[in-house]
């Protein structure tokens, strides 16, 4: 199914799935913060954080490597941090000569690089768990309850609804372009660069005008059902005792991680 690309939600009925989305959002953010606060090379802290990820994964009924595999998407960005291996002063580990330059990786540099990478992987793993166990509409509710400005929440809500619709429209545009552009062997398809850019620009422009018209039609459909400028919705989420308990437990674990990684 084409639309499944938008939904990282894995349906389930675990304690994690049922947890109030507000609690999940806050715990996720605090977990990420906790990772950033774990000092470089405090491996115990990182291991404990990973354990927390694995326990939640298991609790949510997901495969144990579910988040580990998906978290690898941060790796390309690691390139930006590679330079710290050679920049942080410390004991030289080797000396690499490339042309006129000499690179000296240091122990401190390597520790710092790995720490950055591990922080990043752990953080994205928790974010994946959040999306995998919480339907996006529930996340939108949670954000509203966490006092995000109303225009932003409404924008997110309508955006989520029309993401698939517009990307299907785009796919059709792209397919039509492909159907019309033949390619000679050894030549670029679709004419000179400027021409190709112009075609892409036209497609974007067309998509914009269609979106504008859709905005108008949706607005009319809302008017027809009594919309007067205020958006009402019911509040299906009420904090239960186990929500508070889980929140407290998670906070205690995060505090413990911070203390243990500083011993």
């Amino acid at each position: 199914m084409q639309t499944s690309a938008f939904d990282r939600y894995q349906a389930g009925d675990s304690a994690i799935h049922r947890l109030d989305p507000r609690v999940k959002v806050i715990i996720t953010v605090l977990f990420v913060l906790s990772n950033v606060l774990i000092p470089d090379g405090a491996w115990l802290g990182f291991v404990l954080a990973l354990t927390m990820i694995l326990i939640i994964t298991n609790w949510a009924g997901l495969a144990w490597d579910f988040v580990l595999k998906r978290s690898l998407i941060v790796l390309p960005f690691a390139l930006a941090a590679v330079t710290v291996i050679f920049a942080v002063p410390g004991v030289a580990l080797a000396s690499i000569h490339i042309g006129p330059w000499t690179l000296t990786p240091t122990d401190a540099g390597l520790i710092r690089f790995i720490s950055i990478l591990v922080r990043s992987l752990l953080s994205v793993q928790m974010a994946i768990l959040l999306t995998a166990t919480t339907p996006f509409p529930d996340l939108i509710h949670a954000l509203r309850h966490l006092r995000l400005p109303q225009p932003l929440v409404a924008t997110l809500s309508f955006m989520y609804r029309y993401l698939a619709v517009l990307s299907d429209e785009t796919t059709r545009l792209l397919r039509a372009r492909r159907a019309r552009s033949a390619q000679q062997p050894g030549m670029h398809s679709g004419g000179p660069l400027l021409w190709r850019a112009r075609v892409a620009g036209n497609m974007v422009g067309q998509l914009f005008l269609r979106s504008l018209e859709r905005g108008d039609r949706v607005y009319k459909a809302m008017l027809a059902r009594g919309y007067t400028g205020h958006l009402y919705t019911l509040n299906p989420h009420v904090m239960q005792r186990h929500d508070w308990l889980m929140a407290a437990l998670a906070l205690a674990v995060l505090a413990a991680i911070q203390i243990l990684s500083r011993l």
């Binding site: 225009p151 924008t155 309508f158 609804r161 517009l166 785009t170 914009f208 607005y219 809302m222 400028g229």
Partner: peptide, 15 residues
């Protein structure tokens, strides 16, 4: 503006 902004956000995404 409420629906329009959301649809235009989806538009940027699709674009």
């Amino acid at each position: 503006l409420a629906p329009l902004m959301g649809i235009l956000a989806a538009f940027i995404f699709a674009a």
